[in-house]
Every structure is written in structure tokens, then in C-alpha cells.
Nucleic acid binder design. Structure first.
Lengths: 353, 353
DNA sequence: TTGTAGGCGTTATCAA
DNA sequence: TTGATAACGCCTACAA
């Protein structure tokens, strides 16, 4: 793979219209250095007279500093590349706001990209971030449980770190960097325990893609809950979805058809839980009286559907905020995983049976 | 206002670890020029032998091109700055995906920022975009109906365009550039006409902030509908909200208290319509039997609440996509407004009275 | 306090 | 086809 970033020589657009720093300096009748010192907010002292002249010239000439030239000298820039593996619908304005708020406070810019679930695209974007000499990179979402994939990421990120970059993740990747991870095990365990404590024993599980680390953790949590309750684990009650609503419907149909005695369903995303609602609606099944449902994510929609969806909070904004703060602080970034709790939110979609 | 972008001289981070183009060239035993030609995907022909050597050296050295150096020469970069005035909740992953999809296809990157409703911040971000020498800027959302504001934006964008930048908006700003605007007049008119045709005459309106252009358009549309039906316009039935859910509740309370004979409410955002749902719920008012509701936006949530919300589509993704396509094409950008329809989606929240 | 000059990593021009 | 070399716009020792 050539390191060429499919760069196409752009039509050089008339180039600087002579309003660079040099123009400002000339108009103000000062040297380049003086102009720079005034305009770049250097600590170097400049006499009030010259300072005014430079400022005025800059204003008149509508001078806008060239960040590329600056970052070429500095070797880095105050931009954090945020890589979202797959921008699903539970990624909302709230998350962006969380990221943006922290970044802005520190005077940083965000470069947000979406790999749309493609590993190839992910690597390509990571490389772009490096080429852009961003100062930090944040990986959003849960990573793939695949050693080859992990190795490629590690290689790329190592190169980045070696050149002074900072990395953190918002979601588990099991990479040698600072990771803020949701407590998926506890979250799923709480969901299943809640269902069990309401008398449900035949619980269908609609899982997210099995390739994702978070999915395996949630399965672990579910198994743990069953084990604690002494209820045998039944692999046949697990159907895999893709996080999206439609897949929730399909999985639900399958589950209900093959196991008519299922009384409750745990879907690993609110979207898929809504897919279950759709099926229940179509079949004339009442939720929660005839079918109990628990979701995951606590999307804004969860409280507004009828019945309001009992679900587990996925602390997306919290993870994002923490990862951003870690990247922008000066504290050294240790390779560690910081667990953020996933709380169960009880609403109206589960009935006692 | 100094053009200084509050730039703080960062700690120069050990600078290039000697793995720049020069290192690659040296290792491959070729000149800088040759290495550049191979790595930058130039059309200039290079013999197979040298090409291989360069590629290999680049691989071994983990060479990543410096985009800053490139853009310093080119004077521009394939990045489009996307400015969201206020990232409200109806700005979703779908919009980002729409933007990203088009950009990625053309090999461009997106720099997404959120001004959080602050004019000062908006101008600051615009200036940052210019400093970054982005190739295009997209303004998302409806602009403020304020000449001073418009003048400041125009000044900033003119400077940008003069230096070769491309500008488009996704939402009405009434600026001298290519604008993709939603047909707010028709949208609001359709909403009110639908209510009127269902026998409602006392219709409360919860408007978005009056400072926003789109709000005025929607008021115009509403007035037009009343006029056509020969129903007198009643200013007292209009209460201003801020787009958010809570403001919808407050406005609804006010409306219902002051005008107990109101039979329907048109809220200019789905979020505020949900605020109306909240009030109805609290007051024990049945929707739509005792109170009809129409929203605006067609948020994903609209179809899932009970009763499903009748609303007007705000074609956010469509606007975004079109604006992005316009920016990335080579076609000259005329100052024009392209109207995108706002369709009424009839669901279950309106009853005949 | 001010100015001069060198260099950041690339690409483009022009000879060879 | 290849290789010197001059920009690109800016910051910062270092000298004045």
C-alpha cells in the first residue's frame, strides 16, 4: 500500500493575493519579525506605536494568518481528529456538543470523520489525520475483536504517538493507550438480572454484531446474570443484529417463531428494541403484558415511545468528553482502561410474569 | 478586533523525527524531486526501478506526507469547513453521513464546528476556517434576520471567496452566495391549511426564535393559510419558543391558560411539539381528541411517539448534501437560492373537530 | 526594542 | 527521466 493519500495536484488558486504577513509588515513599515510578533500573540514585547501600526495594517489588508505555514514550523496543530467507526443513529448532536465544548475551551478544532464501518476507510482516515499533523486522535465506538485489525491500528497509532501525538478512545478497543470504556458487562448483567427478578426465564437476546468487543462483553454480562440466578444459558435464544432497527425486527421474528415461549427480549441497542416494538405491534402483542423488552443506549427516543423503554445507559457523551479532556491535558497518557458505569434505567417496558 | 486567532505558541514537539521526504529520498538514493513525484501521485513519469525504491523506503520509514507543507504550496486544501450555528437535537448522524458521503467521494475532509448560537463564536470559527485555508465553507441552519450580522458574515465570506474559496449554505441566510433553502413558507402553510381543513380555527402557534429568518417565513406561510381560508390572524395566539422541548411546554401552558378555546397547536419544531405532548399528558388532555398537534422537522422520533406526530419535513440532509455537492463541483457558484420542498407528513396527532 | 536570516517539508521550474 | 534549486508563509534564534 503506497503511502500516497490519493493526492491530486489541485489547481493552484491564484496563490496568496499579496496580503500575507509580508504585505502587512511593509504597509506598517516594520520588519517581518515585528509584524509576526504582534499578530501571533508572541510574548516578545513590541512598542505600542509599532503594534498599533501593524494591527491597523492587518485590519485594512484583511490579513488572515496561514495556519499551514504555522503548523509547518510548529510541527503540530491544535486539531483533534475524531474517528467514528460507524456513525449510527445513537450518535447525536449531544455527543458532538460534548466534544466541541471541551475542544473549544482549549482553543482546539475538531476534525470529525466517519469510517462507515469500513476498516480500510478507517485506516485511510487515520493516515489522513497523521498527514494533517493533528495533535490528537480520538477513536469513538467499540473496536473490533480481531488481532489483525488491532495490529494495524496499533502500528498506525504508534507512529502517531512517536511523533508527539496523543491518543485516547471513547469505547473499548483493547489498544495500548488511554481508553475510556463503558462497563458493558455490568450493563448487560443488570438488564438480564432485572428481567430475571421479574420472573422471566426464557429471555431472547438480540445482540449487536459479534465482531465488536462490546458485544462479547455484554454476552458475558448476560451469562453471568443467568449463572448467578442458576438459570441455564441457552445459546439458541441469541440472535445477532446489526444495531439497526430493521435487524431488530428480523431477529425478533426469528426468536418468536422459533421460541414461542419467550416472554422477554433484551436488545443490545434501543434501535433494535424499537424493531421489536414494531414486530409486537404488527403481531398485536402487547408490551409489556405479553412481551417485555429491555434496550441498550438510552437514546433520547427511549422515554418517548409507548410504553417507555427500559434500557441501559450507554454513556457516549461522557466517554467522548473524558477522552477529549485526556487528550487536551498535559498529563502523560498511560495505557489504561477507565471504566464508566452503564446504569439501568427502569421505565415501563417490562412486566412481572 | 485583532486578527490574531488567540494563537498560543505551542511547545515545539521535537520536530520531524527525520522521516520526512528527504529521509526517504536519501534512503532510496534518489533526489527529493523524484521521491516527491512518486509519493505525491504526480503524473510525471518515473522509471519503475526508482519508483520501487522510493515506495520501499517510504514503507520502511513509515513516511507520512506533511499536509501543511503541501497546502502551503498549493495555497488551499481539500477540507470543507462546516459551520453549524446551533447544533440542536434534530441535527443527527444522518446529516453528518450525508455530508461525509459526498465529501469522501471527492477525497475531501470535513471540519465540523458548532457555534452554539453565539455570533461571536461563529465569526471566530469562520476566521479559523480561513486561516486553515479550507477550500470550501458550508453554513448550516437558518441565519439571523439582522443586517449587521449579515454584513459581518458577508465581509468575512467575501474575503474567503476572493482568495479562491467556495461557499454555500444549507438553510436560508440571504447572503450573496449559493443557498439551498427549505420552503418554509409552503411548509408552514401546509401545516396550518391541514389544521384548518380539519375544522380547527383557534390554532396556537409555538414559534422558533423570531430572530431567525426561517421563523419569519413560517409565520408568513401560516398567515397566508389563514388568509386563504378567510380566518382572521390572531397575534395573541403566537408564543415564541427556543426550539427546545422545555420551551414547547412553557409556551403550551401559556397558550392553554390564556386561550382555553384553542383546539390545535402548531409547533415549529418536533422537540417543542413533544413539549406540548408533555403538557397534554400532565393535564390529562388526550391528543388528538382534545388537542391536535402539528410539528416541524420530521425528527426520527416523530413516528414513534403516541400518537405519531403529524409534522413537516425539514429536509436537512438534502440541503446539506446539495450544498456539499455544489461546493465540490467545479461549476461556478452563482448567488442564488434553490428552494427545497417541505412536505407535510400526516400521522395521527390531528383530529377533525 | 527591532531587524536579519535561516529553516520547516513539499512541490514546481528549469536544466541536464 | 532525473536532479538542483527556488519558492510557499511564517516563526525564532541571533545580531544590532
Amino acid at each position: 500500500m503506497p503511502p500516497n493519500l490519493s493526492y491530486v495536484p489541485a489547481k493552484r488558486p491564484t496563490q496568496a493575493n499579496g496580503s500575507g504577513l509580508a504585505a502587512v509588515a511593509e504597509r506598517a513599515g516594520v520588519s517581518l519579525a515585528t509584524a509576526s510578533r504582534v499578530l501571533a500573540g508572541s510574548t516578545h514585547r513590541v512598542s505600542g506605536d509599532l503594534r498599533d501600526r501593524v494591527l491597523h495594517a492587518a485590519e485594512v489588508l484583511d490579513y488572515v494568518p496561514n495556519a499551514s505555514a504555522r503548523s509547518l514550523i510548529m510541527g503540530t496543530r491544535k486539531i483533534v481528529g475524531v474517528l467514528q467507526h460507524d456513525m449510527l443513529d445513537f450518535f447525536t448532536a449531544t455527543n458532538i456538543r460534548a466534544l466541541e465544548e471541551v475542544a473549544d475551551r482549549a482553543g482546539w478544532l475538531i476534525m470529525l470523520v466517519n469510517a462507515s464501518g469500513s476498516v480500510e476507510k478507517e485506516l485511510r482516515y487515520l493516515r489522513m489525520f497523521r498527514a494533517e499533523r493533528v495533535g490528537a486522535i480520538i477513536l469513538m465506538g467499540s473496536g473490533l475483536d480481531d488481532d489483525g485489525y488491532r495490529a494495524m491500528l496499533t502500528r498506525e497509532l504508534n507512529g502517531f504517538v512517536k511523533s508527539g501525538g496523543r491518543v485516547a478512545t471513547a469505547g473499548r478497543h483493547d489498544l495500548p493507550c488511554t481508553e475510556f470504556v463503558p462497563d458493558n458487562v455490568a450493563g448487560a448483567q443488570a438488564a438480564i438480572e432485572y428481567l430475571l427478578s421479574n420472573g422471566h426465564h426464557r429471555i431472547g437476546i438480540i445482540s449487536s454484531p459479534s465482531a465488536i468487543i462490546g458485544t462479547r462483553e455484554r454476552i458475558t454480562g448476560a451469562k453471568r446474570a443467568f449463572a448467578h440466578a442458576g438459570v441455564p444459558w441457552n445459546e439458541g435464544l441469541v440472535v445477532e443484529g446489526d444495531h439497526r432497527r430493521a435487524s431488530g425486527s428480523i431477529a425478533c421474528e426469528q426468536l418468536l417463531t422459533r421460541n414461542p415461549d419467550v416472554t422477554a427480549i433484551f436488545a443490545m441497542s434501543d434501535e433494535m428494541a424499537l424493531g421489536v416494538y414494531d414486530v409486537a405491534h404488527k403481531r398485536g402483542l402487547s408490551i409489556p403484558d405479553e412481551l417485555s423488552v429491555v434496550g441498550y443506549d438510552d437514546t433520547t427516543i427511549a422515554r418517548d415511545v409507548t410504553p417507555a423503554l427500559t434500557t441501559v445507559i450507554y454513556p457516549n457523551s461522557e466517554l467522548a468528553r473524558r477522552a477529549m479532556e485526556a487528550c487536551l491535558s498535559d498529563a502523560p497518557l498511560e495505557a489504561a482502561q477507565l471504566l464508566i458505569p452503564c446504569e439501568l434505567i427502569v421505565r415501563k417496558s417490562v412486566a412481572r410474569v
